[in-house]
């Protein structure tokens, strides 16, 4: 760790504090993340080994924040691992906020939304093709290089070592806003659809400059979703009423997506509706999304 100068704390990641730091020799900026796991008598714990090596492999994609290295530290007899990631100057939450507040308040350019969504789908498709679900996609976990217009997926919640806790490190409640309905309803056999749902919520948030479903409890979150998309029925989502946490909810009719998102063109509305499909197996995949006509106007050769 002597290799790096810690510059400032840039946030509280899912697993602990994240520092902006600088390589003393090369001057390269990095993000340092301490893992919560301590080394035990048997050396590096197997789960940690498998997860970090998977992260290493996933981060070969330019749409995933690059893992530059792993550093180990011995402090007060404790052994700790730090993950060293490439540093990007901002995240999508701060970026969207910059369009929301102040005298410069204006919608995000639609070209930019298109490009960010495309890069997000690329990153998610990459993870899914390697059998890895992100499970905690949200604007704070998407890092942005403002000048280059680049977006990368960060904070892959791989598993036990990096489990998404109910409360984050600072006891701040982990957001439910991007959580898929099947997870909220207690399904344990969820799959790639959970990430696509989150992508849909993030897509809508870029367009609206505010969260699509901002619930403060699991029930409130579900009610937000149902009020907007209509209460799901067995016809729309076979099996929904047998999910663990299913109850008889008020019956709402779906609202019109295009009216709720007047800034979004019809192709965009169509893609969003496919991402927010109730039945997980009918939800569009990340790979299919990349071929959706919404992206037709985008110069894909740059990606």
């Amino acid at each position: 760790m002597e290799k790096y100068d810690k510059l400032e704390k840039v946030g509280e990641g899912t697993y602990g504090k994240v520092y902006k730091a600088q390589d003393k020799v090369t001057g390269q900026l990095v993000a340092l993340k301490k893992t919560r796991l301590e080394m035990d008598e048997e050396g590096i714990p197997p789960t940690t080994l498998r997860e970090i090596s998977l992260l290493q492999m996933l981060s070969q994609s330019i749409y995933v924040v690059r893992l530059l290295g792993v550093e180990h530290v011995e402090k007060n007899g404790k052994r700790l691992l730090y993950l060293v990631f490439e540093y990007l100057d901002t995240d999508l939450k701060k970026y969207v906020d910059s369009y929301k507040k102040g005298p410069n308040s204006r919608p995000l350019p639609s070209r930019l939304i298109q490009s960010f969504l495309y890069q997000l789908c690329k990153g998610v498709a990459h993870c899914h093709s390697h059998g890895v679900l992100h499970r905690d996609l949200k604007p704070q976990n998407l890092l942005v290089d403002k000048d280059k217009g680049i977006l990368k997926v960060a904070d892959l919640g791989l598993g036990r070592a990096f489990t998404v806790p109910l409360k984050s490190y600072t006891h701040e409640i982990v957001t439910l806003w991007y959580r898929a309905p099947e997870v909220l309803l207690g399904s344990t056999h969820y799959s790639v659809g959970v990430d696509i749902w989150s992508v849909g919520c993030i897509f809508a948030e870029m367009v609206r400059r505010q969260p699509l479903f901002a619930g403060d409890s699991e029930l409130q979150q579900l009610l937000h979703i149902f009020r907007f998309l209509g209460t799901p029925t067995e016809a729309k989502w076979p099996g929904v009423s047998s999910l663990r946490d299913w109850h008889d909810y008020p019956q709402w009719k779906p609202q019109s997506l295009s009216q709720a998102l007047p800034n979004l063109d019809s192709e965009g509305v169509d893609l969003l509706s496919k991402m927010l499909e109730y039945c997980p197996s009918n939800r569009i995949s990340a790979k299919e999304a990349l071929d959706h006509p919404y992206f037709n106007g985008l110069d894909k050769s740059q990606f």
Partner: peptide, 21 residues
């Protein structure tokens, strides 16, 4: 999740929680 390594599938994280995938 376990992500056991399989020589024949180095690129796939074999995640027991997401059997389907």
């Amino acid at each position: 999740m376990e992500f056991d390594f399989d020589l024949e599938n180095p690129l796939a994280g074999v995640d027991h929680d997401t059997q389907q995938l």
